[in-house]
Write a protein that binds this DNA or RNA. Structure first.
Length: 489
RNA sequence: GGUCUCGUGGCCGAGCGGCUAGGCACCGGUCUGCAAAACCGUCUACAGCGGUUCGAAUCCGCUCGAGACCUCCA
């Protein structure tokens, strides 16, 4: 374990405070994050949450925790509205596209994996699906029924919120009061199965035309959306585990219901630290599939969307996200991305420069102070923007070394290099922009061309020199005349 | 309508009682045949109005504005 691990503070949505992180089992961490409902392409807003928790995962790994990271795939049970009526999202898409539901699931799961891979997000330790855990869900319902906190009506089972709230604080996560919730509930016609509008479905009876259904003790049906996360987190992480993450918009009702289901089945609140990532906005509004205010990662990479002036590399987008705290909303604009792109390149060049720094017998740079600043930033509720700022402070120092205005010992340089790379590559999850394809031939040509240009320059033949430069520029190759010779990109 | 969050310099964003991040842009400089790039420096902001305090962007109240949740959403 890293010695900094004991100082990690996490903002807990349940208490509204930053708390020191103490895992249930020392050195081991169980973390569950709500994954996507795979009925469509993931948009950039979805990605932000997963990238935020990728940062959490990576930093915990860096600190030396043994961590089991579970992130589910919702492939059934997610209805179009939470009146517990309406069509299943997967089934609807399947009907519209005339495909099997599992073809829909497969298509968009593959897309999801591909996109997260492009963003260099680690895959979770376990990625369970709702359809693969019907039995576990049924068992949990039985447990809740046994405890008298759910009731069956016409082949459906509903969670009894009123009864539950006699023993447990329903609404504690989202800070809501039952009375307020009821007051805000609209009357819905013909849905009198529920005793209380706040009750939510654990199991829904399926009509004959329903295409995704399973047999259960209550007849043929399908599980409610909130249940899968409870069943799967319990199965893989235990009745109580350390961290549960998800987007802010899942806080209510989804996570509130998860707490209720956990308490109702085991008597214990399932999660110690609730973490919620904030939304990515576009034009100041939340990115959302249902409103169409979205941007797809593929559009972002290619630049094929009217809000973009050009395409951006996934690593630039990731870096852009790292410059904002995960609990703050982040507004997406093309200008902001362009700014991030410049900064990203600056950071990456400084890292490359580290290998070219010459060492000395003494250091004028406080290397340990810089390294400590990386940890203190991340230990303060994963404050990546502060980490980035501290890394840029380091960049400034590296430039000073390059200019000969500062000195560093070999040991300090080694330590700095190791830690800076660890935080940039392992923790922030950034990678250098890989040159596309095989450039060896181009490099040979460029060496030759730049050599000829240098000869012209040596002869003060500016006409030839500039002709080469302009010609290359027209071909999209930028020539940079530096102190130590000419480079290109 | 109810609950809650937020309003920071040209832009994006940290900070959340005193030490006034960072990136980008702008401007100035170094370098350079010129240009670009790179590097260095400058720019001192916290919606408005009151209050608490020796001291507030940071705490409290009010006003205005934006957003989220309350219905599917990461």
């Amino acid at each position: 374990m890293n010695s900094y691990a004991k100082d990690l503070h996490i903002y807990n949505s349940l208490t509204g405070k930053k708390e020191i992180f103490t895992p249930i089992h020392p050195a081991f961490v169980g973390m569950y994050v709500c994954g996507p409902t795979v009925y469509n392409y993931v948009h950039l807003g979805n990605c932000r949450t997963f990238i935020s928790f990728d940062l959490v995962y990576r930093y915990l790994l860096h600190l030396g925790f043994k961590i089991r990271y579970v992130r589910n795939i919702t492939d059934v049970g997610h209805l179009e509205n939470d009146a517990d009526e309406g069509e299943d999202k997967i089934a609807k898409k399947a009907r519209l596209d005339q495909l099997e539901p599992m073809e829909i699931v497969q298509k968009y799961t593959l897309d999801f994996h591909k996109v997260l891979d492009q963003f260099n997000a680690y895959p979770p330790s376990i990625e369970p699906t709702a359809t693969g855990h019907i039995i576990e869900q049924i068992e949990m319902i039985q447990e809740i029924l046994k405890n008298g906190l759910a009731y069956e009506v016409n082949g459906s089972v509903y969670f009894d919120v009123n009864k539950y709230s006699e023993s447990f604080p329903y609404g504690e996560l989202s800070g809501r009061k039952i009375e307020d919730l009821i007051a805000g509930t609209r009357e819905l016609d013909g849905q009198d199965e529920k005793r209380n509008p706040l009750d939510f479905a654990l199991w829904k009876n399926a009509s004959p035309e329903h295409i995704m259904k399973w047999t259960s003790p209550w007849g043929i049906g399908f599980p409610g959306w909130h249940l899968e996360c409870s069943a799967m987190s319990t199965k893989y992480l235990g009745e109580q585990f350390d961290i549960h993450g998800g987007g802010m918009d899942l806080k209510f009702p989804h996570h509130e219901c998860e707490i209720a289901q956990g308490c109702a089945s085991t008597g214990k609140s399932p999660v110690n630290y609730w973490m919620h990532g904030n939304m990515l906005t576009l034009n100041g509004k939340k990115m959302s599939k249902s409103t169409g205010n979205t941007l797809l990662p593929s559009e972002l990479f290619s630049g094929e969307n009217e809000v973009l002036t050009k395409g951006f590399h996934p690593m630039v987008v990731r870096f852009f996200m790292m410059q904002a705290h995960y609990r703050s909303t982040l507004d997406f604009t093309s200008d902001a991305l362009s700014a991030a792109e410049k900064g990203f390149e600056k950071l990456m060049e400084a890292i490359q420069d580290l290998s070219r720094v010459s060492t000395s017998t003494a250091s004028t740079i406080d290397v340990n102070g810089l390294i400590a600043s990386y940890y203190s930033a991340m230990n303060d509720d994963f404050n990546a923007p502060i980490l980035v700022a501290n890394l840029f402070e380091t960049v400034k120092q590296i430039n000073a070394l390059k200019e000969g205005k500062a000195t560093i010992t070999q040991a300090d340089l080694d330590g700095l290099t190791k830690n800076m790379k660890a935080f940039v590559f392992d923790v922030l999850g950034l990678t250098t922009l890989s040159e596309s394809g095989d450039n060896s031939k181009l490099e040979g040509v460029m060496d030759l061309v730049l050599n000829l240009r240098q000869q012209a320059r040596d002869n003060k033949d500016w006409a030839t020199s500039d002709k080469i430069r302009d010609g290359l520029a027209a071909a999209g190759l930028v020539v940079k005349d530096g102190k130590k010779g000419t480079s290109w990109k």
